Amino acid sequence: MQLVSLDDIRAAAGRVRGQVLRTPLLPAPWADSDRPLWLKPELLQVIGAFKLRGAVNALAALGERATGQGSARQHVVAYSSGNHAQAMAYAARQLGAPAHIVMPEGTPQVKVDGTRRYGAEVVLVPLAERESTAYRLVDELGAVLVPPFDHPDIIAGQGTAGLEIGEDLPDVELVLVPVSGGGLASGVGTAVKALCPNATVIGVEPELAADAADSLRAGHIVEWPAQDRARTIADGLRAQPSELTFAHLQAVLDDIVTVSDDEIREAMRVLATGSRLIAEPSGAVPLAAYLYRADDLPRGRTVVVLSGGNVDRAMLADVLG
């Protein structure tokens, strides 16, 4: 299996330049003095999450490979718990391509509304039926499927966030990145390990959806039932790695740690009160590891990737109390 390379990620950076925000590294003055912390706020992207990087790169690469039949503008289908949905809807609208997005029932309404706002047709189904419904729509519509993480162009696009980390803080010692389907961690880990070979890259999962942690320790993919993964407050981290992303995670992650839902809530509060940043639960997961798993992590210059900020208002009000 061929893995995404630094050259692939650099090519993706060229494609997304001007359409994706180069997010800054924000210092966190409230962090421990012996563990200086920078926040990579992907929640500042126009759709509120890092997923825009992969979506834009995938559609741009599709256009490059077109054979003159307008492939870049043909109907596209995606399945997602929310952030890839909004990213695909936004990217497709920019290209004038119609889009159908399959989303699981129970997705926060803010994500459903955002996807519809960008012009996509939303199809709500049970969590376990997302992929099968998407493939059915591809056949019915003659569309192109753009998966949320299981594609080299998606991984390379997400890896542009890691490219920026390596360029902006070349002496970084620890990068904490959330893990779900594994596209972000695969891309970020690939870029950081290539540019900063002495850095440690650690994935972070909710305890209630820790299938990737189990898989890495077992040396093969360990499947968790969808209903088990659905228990966590971190609705964006309920997917499980594919063979492609799992191969990347094995290659670039030094470890995976897990955090509880209560710790995720507290991390959201710290971000809101300490840095004036509103993160969704999935986006706050890496900070929860920084706050509560210090004994399991190397000390030194740390970057936390805040993957998204599309949080339901009622949940945010409950978290902030």
Rank of each mutant, 00 (worst) to 15 (best):
D139W: 12
S242C: 14
L316K: 01
L59F: 09
A289M: 07
A314H: 13
D168A: 11
R238N: 03
S33Q: 13
N83K: 02
G68S: 09
N83S: 11
Q86A: 14
G157M: 00
H220C: 10
V222M: 06
L249R: 04
A239W: 09
P108I: 15
G157F: 02
S180E: 06
L291W: 05
E263Y: 08
Q94D: 12
G142A: 11
M103D: 08
A11H: 09
T23H: 08
A234V: 02
V179I: 07
V222S: 09
V175D: 00
S132G: 05
L169G: 06
A87S: 00
A289Q: 06
T67C: 13
E140T: 14
P197N: 06
D295R: 15
S132N: 01
A11V: 13
G189K: 11
I202K: 03
A272D: 01
S5G: 06
W224V: 05
L95V: 10
R116G: 14
V122W: 05
H75I: 04
P108A: 13
M315G: 09
E243G: 12
Y290S: 07
V204S: 11
A314N: 14
A279G: 10
R136N: 01
R136K: 15
L25Y: 10
V252H: 07
A31F: 09
D7E: 13
I101R: 00
L184R: 06
R65K: 15
P41H: 04
A128P: 02
D296N: 06
P225F: 11
L26N: 11
R35Y: 04
A60G: 03
G166I: 07
A209H: 05
A199P: 04
P206W: 08
G308Q: 03
V285W: 03
H100Q: 06
L52R: 02
Q240N: 08
L287V: 00
G106L: 00
A247D: 05
V222F: 12
A194F: 07
K111L: 15
A218N: 07
G219Y: 07
